[in-house]
Design a protein around this nucleic acid. Structure first.
Lengths: 156, 156
DNA sequence: TTGTTTGCAAACCCTTTGCACGTGC
DNA sequence: GCACGTGCAAAGGGTTTGCAAACAA
């Protein structure tokens, strides 16, 4: 994870700090490396995703980006998310009762799923261990082990 | 799991054996206990689900049931699966790149997911252990811990 | 008979696609 | 200029819903 460019996202100042500038340059480089032209739309979306820890739907991302004054279409959001996914910049998550969610953290980790409110919370990989993996089918190899801890509100 | 009624499903004889009869009676009782009228459609679907180990989509179940000569509509399959789900007779699974899948095994277990072919294989609960569960958010309790082991075809 | 359930078709929602226009290089 | 990317609107696929007819009790 790129972590050195993190502190400026809360600021409401109109992007004058050098941090923002180098972030743009960094994002441009990332897109180029992934074989994508750094268009305005892709940069706007990358800026909201890369190096942040988020779980977003295409719709949420669209509304948020549009609200910020950056015009783009929902179709472009979908297409761009798929491209980012192919390049490994985001990962798709699936839970019942929820539409596709894209996770900006592509490193190994797990999730709490609050079923009643369809909310996702990250679980860092190191706070949980899976042992005694069973034998896997012939001709296959493990790509990734993911744990979902389903939570519900405590009764009483 | 109800396991004593399992051997007759391969038979192509037109349902004359006593096993079939008692299975029907058993399914009727299960539906009644769940507060559902044992209609022909619900019994046909229950017969293909309950006490079997399957992962099916609504569409698959519809095609299969229709092919067996039991008329019913796709809408009824969806509605019935949702009712079965509410009663805990089946569970819904979600994987990216796959539409809703219903799992007839509602007991605690895990899954292999063969990403390239969108296939699901069960992992018995006892062949795998999750340890060091992290602290969970205030006011919530663990409902279920599920592990998905994503597999891909071995390269070489 | 009476309240449920079913079937159908239409509605819905999310997502993808085709094509004309715009844009980065 | 040329290829690639975007926006729009329409199509697509899965799932739910409204309502009249069929059915279980």
């Amino acid at each position: 994870m790129h972590s050195d460019i993190s502190s400026s996202s809360q600021s409401s100042a109109p992007a004058l700090e050098p941090t923002e500038c180098s972030r743009r340059a960094c994002l441009t480089a990332i897109l180029r490396m992934a074989g994508m032209r750094p268009t305005r739309q892709r940069l706007d979306l990358a800026d909201r995703l890369i190096g942040r820890d988020r779980h977003v739907t295409a719709e949420e991302l669209y509304v948020e980006t549009a609200a910020a004054g950056h015009e783009l279409s929902l179709a472009t959001v979908y297409n761009t998310l798929r491209q980012f996914q192919s390049s490994g910049l985001v990962r798709e998550l699936a839970f019942e009762g929820m539409r596709s969610v894209f996770d900006t953290d592509t490193s190994r980790h797990h999730h709490f799923y609050l079923t009643e409110e369809s909310r996702i919370i990250d679980i860092p990989a190191h706070t949980l261990a899976v042992t005694d993996l069973p034998g896997i089918p012939e001709g296959y190899e493990v790509n990734r082990v993911e744990v979902v801890v389903r939570l519900r509100r405590k009764e009483h």
